[in-house]
Amino acid sequence: MPTPRFTFHQPQNLEQALDLVGMYRTNGKILAGGTDLVPKLRAGLMDVHHVVSLNRVPGLNRITFHEDDGLVIGAGARLADVALNPEVMKHYPGLAHACSVMATTQIRNMGTVAGNIVNSAPSADTAAPLLAYKAAVILVERGGRRHVPLTEFFSGPGLNVMEPMEIMEAIRVPSPPRRSGSAYLRLSARSKVDIAAVGVAGFLALDMDGVIIEARLALAAVAPTPLRCPEAEAMLAGQKPDPQLLTRAAAACVRACRPIDDVRATAAYRRKMVQVLAGRVIEQCYQTAERGDA
């Protein structure tokens, strides 16, 4: 592969960054941690003449949490920082878990949640938990800002609704209600350091009697995009879980997915694993929800 050659820009603030992104919208790329971008450049997969780094833009790496507003993850926040953030660990354990088990130590120290979402791989590990937490992304461009719910963000493998001049500024996640629980489980063949072959995230909110008020389930690596499972969610709402309901809801998750055979796993195995992991995730969510009033 010929060595890629490009101009490297390091804007000092968001304004400059937006200018550069606007100027090079046809042949430029944004760089956060670079853990997706750089391998692609090296493999000669893209024709890029300008790389715009966000790493000198101040404030982008903030992670803030307020009871009322919820969580804001700045686009520069590293996976490792999100994984170890006490607030994230407490209120969004599924996300913290995703950020702590995905990739490798080195990649987690460089890679960002925003990069993971913008890259839009079907297997993106933070996507399923963020979908389950009903996250939205904040996109900015010169003279504008919009909120896009994550459910409307992904449009295909590696594809999303972002415009070329837009920068993802942050990810917003609503505050979880009391008596709720959440979890993320992922599975791959080389247990520890690997891209997920299947990922399942869940969120359950309960009333005082332990009846499910709201259920959200999301899957990764089993369809062209990460996705939610409305049928299973509807099945759970208004119910107290029992083993049969769990099995039926997990089966509904299987119906939601459209897995393929690839070098990582066969479709049959992925379907089976959605069944297994969805069952475990719902159970885990329910148990933490029942325990916690916090």
Binding site: T104, A189, R190, S191, K192, V193, D194, V263, R264
Partner: peptide, 9 residues
Amino acid sequence: DYKMPTAED
């Protein structure tokens, strides 16, 4: 995709 165990495994 060639799944060699790592130090973590």
